[in-house]
């Protein structure tokens, strides 16, 4: 009815981003001062600085935001977050945008950085299988999948690591792996229901 339509505000993209971020990200307080972009070590490589991304979010430009490489180039250094005059949880919002772009399938677009999200997913696979990560295995499988030619670059590093006994070819399985699987399964169901 007209009354409900008038009282219930439709969910905006801005609301979605806030809901996907744990705690209260305080995004509505952004002043557009640009401190975040100026502090960001990856700023020059990003399609949009964090400040610009927040303007796009406020404008509801979902597609542009989720296709942007910005979140994927965020190295999680927290500079922006400690410098932001409004104490906005910028780094956590970047993580939220990564998850949202994976869910929306938009990260596969050429303009974004497919490698970054694939790397994250390869890593997750290892952890889920063994409970602990296996650094070189991860890098190798990731490179075989995505940059078979780049593998050659990994060889010397891998050999050097091995000679220095800094490498192990067997990932270690934790004892409570079944317990961990049960926990992760339940968490995924809860996450999907939310």
């Amino acid at each position: 009815m007209a009354t409900t339509a008038a009282t219930v505000r439709p969910t905006t993209f801005f609301d979605e981003v806030v809901a996907e971020t744990p705690g209260d990200p305080r995004l509505e307080a952004c002043l557009q001062c640009g401190t975040c972009g100026g502090s960001c070590p990856s700023g020059a490589d990003m399609d949009h600085t964090p400040r610009a991304i927040f303007a796009l979010i406020a404008a509801g430009m979902k597609d542009a935001v989720l296709r942007s490489n910005t979140a994927w180039y965020c190295v999680s250094c927290y500079y922006c977050m400690v410098r932001c005059p409004q104490e906005i949880h910028i780094t956590d919002i970047m993580y939220a945008l990564k998850r949202m772009s994976i869910k929306a399938g938009l990260y596969q677009d050429k303009t974004s950085v497919p490698e970054a999200s694939d790397f994250a997913e390869t890593f997750v696979n290892y952890v889920e299988t063994y409970g602990r990560s296996f650094e070189l295995g991860l890098a190798t499988r990731y490179h075989l999948l995505h940059h078979p030619l780049d593998m050659i670059k990994m060889v010397p590093l891998g050999l050097g690591m091995w000679r220095r006994k800094r490498l192990d070819f067997t990932p270690r399985r934790i004892e409570g792996i079944e317990q961990l699987h049960a926990i992760l399964k339940r968490a995924k169901e809860l996450g999907a229901a939310a």
Binding site: E20, P22, S76, Y95, A96, K98, R99, I102, S117, F119, A120, E121, F123, V124, V127, G131, R132, S133, I174, E175, G176, Q179, L180, I183, L184, R186, A187, K188, L190, G191, A194
Partner: peptide, 24 residues
């Protein structure tokens, strides 16, 4: 019997499992 905390990658993929992984 600690497990990996997911480094910075897990949280980028799925929030709740990431928090569950750390919280174990």
């Amino acid at each position: 019997d600690w497990n990996c905390c997911g480094a910075i990658e897990y949280i980028a993929v799925d929030l709740l499992p990431a928090y569950a992984l750390i919280s174990r």
